[in-house]
Design a protein around this nucleic acid. Structure first.
Lengths: 214, 214
DNA sequence: ATTACTAACCGGCGAGTAA
DNA sequence: TTTACTCGCCGGTTAGTAA
């Protein structure tokens, strides 16, 4: 699973490429790897026994070379990391649901409507579109999006909680994900505001699939 | 240097993306990571203290999330691995030298000339071009090249050693790197054969730079 | 100079268990 | 069920040193 002796393998690989051999000494390596000469010696023998390296002792020290096995290990690790970092994150898929979100309430209040217009540049339709999304895709999607905060504010009568918004586009319509403060805990249903009643404008029904874009 | 607790970080990342949090239990993790529940618990606390993860214990287990620090660590590792695997290897730079290579001798023998024609499809000029190259670039360059072997053979008078060849192109001229068996040990001067006297054909002098292509 | 063995030590691992 | 503490044990690390 976890690549054993990874630091050794990378040290060898970075010093002479994946395929050439690396003339060094155990004490040189021990400094680079912050350990003792003896530990390096023992670990290299162990790695050789595991088929991770070829190891030739000579007068000047040791000649080390990665084996196919260890190159493969590094390659697999590289692929796994790549797939973590290269996930498509410019699009988020959502499924239309009719759960009653709290956003619907907020968006109906004139005080917030004004704020939405001011900060997002859109006067929202008095209702939200609820989308069920994959939580981890959501986190990835909004990770690089600008975080537009509508701060909490108070009138004589009551206090209005803050809302976090992210500008998105749905079929080229400017819209926004809104997340009321008190529902900040991660949940897999998000609410979208837009200048139109999206359900009719985009002919959406429950379980329709929608793509949010940045 | 070496990323600590890498297997833990990857496990978390692969389960819920880099940015979302991961609801799990220490015993679930211990199975996946082939260790004990106690060790997982201890390591997670340690990782939290090192600022590698955020960790929230709840009734159902633990909620884990990578921090910026650990995402950065993974990203750095990914970049280092990428630069190992993405090295340009379709071109090899060589510097013309006039060291007397052994290939010059072999290539002058009619027995080898016949073999070169047969196996490489080129009747070589009776001399070689010596190039100084970077050893690790060389290893990378020939790694994926077909390894054409001229076996050793004997006549009544003597024995001829084997030669390993790699087909290459220099300015679109078909050529080959030749490596006599007895000089198989890695050295940073290689010998090139081609149907022409390359020095004059390409106007090369000592220290001229030459690009070998696949 | 090297590598690498031996032996003492020290720290991580996990069984048991509390909360 | 959880998490995570204590503690005994085992194994990796390193000092000393041989080759």
């Amino acid at each position: 699973m976890g690549v054993e002796h990874l630091d050794y393998l990378i040290e060898i690989a970075e010093n002479n490429g994946l395929f050439a051999s690396y003339q060094t000494t155990t004490s040189q390596l021990s400094k680079k790897l912050s350990t003792s000469q003896q530990t390096v010696s023992r670990n290299l023998i162990e790695m050789e026994n595991q088929g991770l390296i070829e190891r030739k002792v000579n007068l000047n020290g040791i000649e080390l070379k990665l084996t196919k096995k260890s190159i493969q290990l590094l390659e697999n690790l590289n692929k796994r990391l790549n797939s973590l970092f290269n996930r498509k994150s410019s699009v988020l898929k959502g499924i239309v649901t009719s759960g009653i979100g709290e956003g619907r309430y907020y968006v109906s209040l004139p005080q917030y409507q004004k704020k939405f217009k001011e900060l997002l540049g859109l006067l929202p339709f008095a209702g939200t579109l609820n989308l069920k999304v994959n939580l981890s895709d959501l986190a990835q999607f909004i990770h690089n999006l600008e975080n537009i905060e509508i701060p909490s504010f108070s009138t004589k009568e009551r206090t209005f909680g803050s809302i976090t918004c992210y500008k998105v586009k749905i079929k080229n319509i400017d819209a926004a994900i809104i997340m009321p403060e008190r529902t900040r805990h991660e949940k897999d249903i998000i609410e979208i505001i837009a200048p139109f009643y999206l359900r009719s404008k985009l002919h959406l029904k429950d379980n329709s699939e929608v793509l949010l874009e940045k």
